[in-house]
Nucleic acid binder design. Structure first.
Lengths: 243, 243
DNA sequence: CGTTTAATTGACATTATTCAACCCGGGTGG
DNA sequence: CCACCCGGGTTGAATAATGTCAATTAAACG
């Protein structure tokens, strides 16, 4: 197992069999979560790290006014709770948005991680660096892109990330997010998400129905988004849209 | 030297003399940058990591339309270019916003870092985790806080971060950012930054003049911002505003 | 000083939000 | 089997927040 992680790492660098073996040996404890199940609640103490094998997890903050901001979306091959395990508490809710299967690594201190599990540390370092890139890019979107660009951008991003772990082909991917989820991810209202998606559909860029997204015109979508896949750092992939 | 880093790390955990010594020994190569000097340009290849000893550095993206988004602000005690060194290229411009003094660590591979410089790796891991927290919180601000809250929030954050490295006392701090910088950091227009700052001043929460910020009413500012310092994870500090 | 950069202010335009309906499809229980 | 309900999705109109444009003032700097 742990295929998606290896697929992702291969996107970053040439993965050796030793590293694969070392990580595989550590993937012994399995965990699973039902849709809407809370993995950690914000403020909660926590020590474990999870590696998602399948399913979608949202990292979200609930504000006093009853609003919510989704900071990122974790898919197969992504680690979650790394920061929570380092700091001891989570700043965010982590919620399964679909059935989730994961591997669990318990109580790994930083020092122990570096010294005893260098392969896992390497995987975590790269994954974490990419996650930070994704957050930084989301800041750019929220700060300086309009609703249409933001939507197009996040769809491009998810398309790329899912493609690397072989969960998207031919621009077709399963997207278990409601319009309200997208709204909270993109910092807009659900109603505006609806209008924006319909605008993208009207331009024949995407088709979204029943949790299924078809990217009809990847190039056009990337142009509408101002999307440049460089920030994902899948350097070894050949089919990166870069415009 | 390297005082600000140690002050920051002490905010996170009990720092041992061995770790301090090990890091100090690595701080041999100095670098300095003039205001507006570009440290890395986006897309540029890069291998070095810097530890800022004094001064302010902006991490910013320039978009095609001529707009700019500042992703974060690095101050004394912060590392920059860690991601750029890992991925080999930078996604952002790094620009000195004031005279900057830094230490430089050249061509540190991830494996080498973990194996040969565990103390530095530890410092980097914590700093990096905090930086990611700051980015995540910025996403919350940009997505779900209005202009006044965003401004108040970033001023609270900078107040806390500067206080930890002993660059703010009594709510008084040097803030070498123009209204345009704040605009690009908070995803709004310079004109609205002006209006927002005047609104905060009108409420007697802050006084901002000539690159000098006075936080007149820290508690009131935190309330206006919905600011909870928890995400900075300065667990060992006693004077954290948490409301 | 004179020049440039930054801050301030008012009028107006634009974008996105809010409010209020209404639709649609898939359960579920009577 | 059908009525109802509920979680999504869709749409229009009114409103609020913020951006843009334009002009002025103030401050910083050689």
């Amino acid at each position: 197992m742990t295929r998606p992680l290896f697929a992702k790492l291969r996107g970053f660098f040439a993965l050796t069999a030793e590293i694969e073996d070392a990580i595989t040996k550590l993937c012994v404890q399995r965990a699973s979560f039902a849709p809407r199940e809370v993995i950690i609640r914000q403020g909660e103490a926590y020590q474990a790290i999870y590696l998602i094998d399948s399913g979608w997890v949202l990292r979200a903050r609930h504000l006093r006014q009853g609003t919510r901001q989704i900071v990122n979306v974790a898919i197969a091959g992504d680690f979650i709770c790394f920061n929570a395990s380092l700091f001891g508490t989570s700043d965010f809710d982590l919620v399964a948005r679909s059935p989730v299967a994961a591997f669990r690594f318990e109580r790994l201190g930083v020092g122990e991680l570096f010294a005893r599990h260098p392969s896992l540390a390497l995987a975590l370092a790269w994954s974490n660096a990419q996650e930070e890139s994704v957050l930084a890019e989301r800041i750019v979107s929220l700060g300086r892109r309009n609703a249409l660009e933001r939507m197009a951008h996040v769809l491009c991003e998810l398309g790329e990330r899912l493609a690397v772990v072989e969960l998207a082909s031919d621009g077709r991917l399963s997207l278990p997010l409601t319009q309200e989820d997208l709204a909270d991810l993109l910092g807009m209202s659900q109603i505006h998400v609806n209008r924006t998606l319909r605008a993208l559909a009207g331009r024949h860029l995407v088709h979204y129905k029943a949790g299924q997204l078809d990217i009809l015109d990847p190039k056009g979508l990337a142009i509408a988004a101002g999307f440049d896949a460089g920030y994902l750092h899948y350097a070894r992939r050949s089919d990166i849209v870069s415009g």
